[in-house]
Amino acid sequence: MPNPPATVTIRKGGDDDGHVGSLAQVHQEAERELPDLPPNPVMEAIDLNVFYGDFHAVHDVKLSFGKNEITALIGPSGCGKSTVLRCLNRMNDLVAGARVEGQVTYHGQDIYARGVDPIMVRTHIGMVFQKPNPFPKSIYDNIAYGPRVTGMKVDKMDDVVEEALRGAALWDEVKDKLKQSAYGLSGGQQQRLCIARTIATKPDVILMDEPCSALDPIATSRIEDLMLELREQYTIIIVTHNMQQAARVSDRTAFFTAKPDETTGNRTGLLVEYNLTNKLFSNPNDKRTEDYISGRFG
């Protein structure tokens, strides 16, 4: 085909158009007074290295996730942020050839220690995925699935379902069709159902892997509101490609980038900067962070 039209405009560097300033501005709603580092981290990654076979995917990540805080992991594609997220509840165990070195602690306990059951880890650390993935069952059965499979002691399942759906701000929309298929819901509703499904098992930490990337802006904003509500009860760690989203919801932000290996050219992800969201966006310590958030790279 002859030259396609250039429809993508590449942003110039610098902050001539107030792009970075707007990030700091949208953060104000989520902003709280927090110490520089989480005082009592719920989870910590200590010298975390991840390999897929011979491929070194993530290099020496040190992170701590504070209680009732939202931590955003941002960075360009292939920088290992999703890999890090999946290590936090041992979902990477399911990938053939994946190997984790270093420690991931949950309340001080290494979840990769010998004898730790990944099934138990996942009941405490829930996960919401990029694409809404309700089960091909009724709305009710979707929520009841977690408590049923984990053998949770439940007085009345109806109450558990209602509480979870209320928690995910979905109850009013679905209370009359609990027995209908979850596939009848819109994309945004499905994603909130997935969040409800996760909180029904009463986890401590909720991991979210780009939860809004398949949703329209209105559904996205509802999920973001929900995250700010859930922050009161849960610790949330979210991977996002959307810097605006990180700015809008997160308390702390970790910026990752990918460094090509000199000999093989394989890109290894590494943590560049971890800071309060406000500081990271308004006054980054690292040149690479500044380049990324101002749109000069990535």
Binding site: N89, M91, L94, I119, M120, R122, T123, G126, M127, F129, N133, P134, F135, Y145, G146, V149, T150, C194, R197, T198, T201
Partner: peptide
């Protein structure tokens, strides 16, 4: 994955 992430075997 959704099922496993909920703590199912």
């Amino acid at each position: 994955q959704g099922s496993l992430a909920l703590g199912a075997t």
